[in-house]
Nucleic acid binder design. Structure first.
Lengths: 187, 187
DNA sequence: GTCTATATATAGATAGAC
DNA sequence: GTCTATCTATATATAGAC
């Protein structure tokens, strides 16, 4: 196992659980098994580590969404899959989406990091808009409204649902919050 | 002006902007104009300060909701007012609801503080359930579903909308996210 | 690449003078 | 109630040996 990858994995888990200011090189040191000075060899600054983390995470999520878009599934099925991605990210109510976790303290994120996050969220919104436009055509989401309003509401809902779930360390709170949205899907 | 109140005000603003770990007694010292040792006279520990903050904040919000409930307004109007409270709390896209800001790092909140937050959120959900039950009777919210599912979705949505707004330091992002919900209100 | 040792900054908190 | 002075812990980060 690559040390750099192990560090990124440990940092991602810690950041999504405790926020950017909620973990230190000391914590990573214990998890990965090397001294803090050695971590600085791989990632000279914590800000740089976090930018690397954002790049890896957003690339993975965007690839998953592109795969979904190419799957040929109905809009309703893609919406269920999209919600499922955010549900799985919860990790039994302990974690948030990396970008949401970072946006809890936006002033502590480097300018580079923030720019990456904004690019990611803009792409995510465009993906959702395309989804709700498809829904107007295939009819697999009940009572479809303006795609851009639907997309913004959908993203805010799943992010709020994550916060609710982690507040109780309970995935069920997530399910309750998205129940209404999912009940609109047909086929 | 009471020093204790000035400290609470400064701490609330700082916490809602930067999170629990994003402000220090040093910061409060600069804002209020007394030394950090003097702050410890009013609030011996930071954890105690935060519990006091939660108590003041949740009491204020719950009182506002009770006033709304007694106002005799339609369910649609009360929902618009409810969303308006979360919108006003944004403070031009710089702040979150205190409890949401704290739930970003739940492990750093004292057991007392967490208990207060959970009590508050449970009451808020009950208030919303009552609202959506009223909507089924007075018909001022379109297409009403199960009140408890509506309540959970509504709370998650406004909280997610706050995060979206602060990500861009822009209240418009909040408005976009809640547009669909508000468009369901009639009269 | 990883280590020990260390530098530097800042955090929350306490003692005791005024 | 507020101050100066200080304690202790922890943070990010660097220098230089191995």
């Amino acid at each position: 196992m690559n040390t750099r990858t192990a560090l990124l994995d440990a940092a991602e888990q810690a950041l999504r659980s405790h926020g950017q200011n909620g973990f230190s090189y000391q914590d990573l040191s214990k998890t990965v098994g090397i001294r803090t000075a050695s971590i600085h060899y791989h990632f000279p600054s914590k800000a740089g580590l976090i930018v690397a983390l954002i790049q890896r995470y957003t690339a993975d999520v965007l690839e998953a969404l592109e795969d979904l878009g190419r799957s040929g599934s109905t809009a309703g099925q893609q919406l269920r899959d999209f919600v499922g991605i955010y549900r799985a990210a919860l990790n039994d109510g302990r974690c948030l989406c990396l970008c949401v976790a970072l946006l809890m303290a936006p002033d502590d994120v480097s300018a580079d990091g923030l720019a990456e996050i904004h690019r990611f969220r803009a792409k995510e919104l465009r993906w959702l808009e395309r989804l709700f436009a498809q829904a107007q055509a295939d009819g697999t989401i009940q009572n479809p409204q303006d795609p851009s309003a639907e997309a913004a509401a959908c993203l805010a809902l799943v992010e709020g649902a994550q916060i609710n779930a982690r507040a109780n360390h309970d995935t069920a709170a997530f399910d309750t919050a998205v129940e209404l949205l999912l009940s609109r899907t047909r086929g």
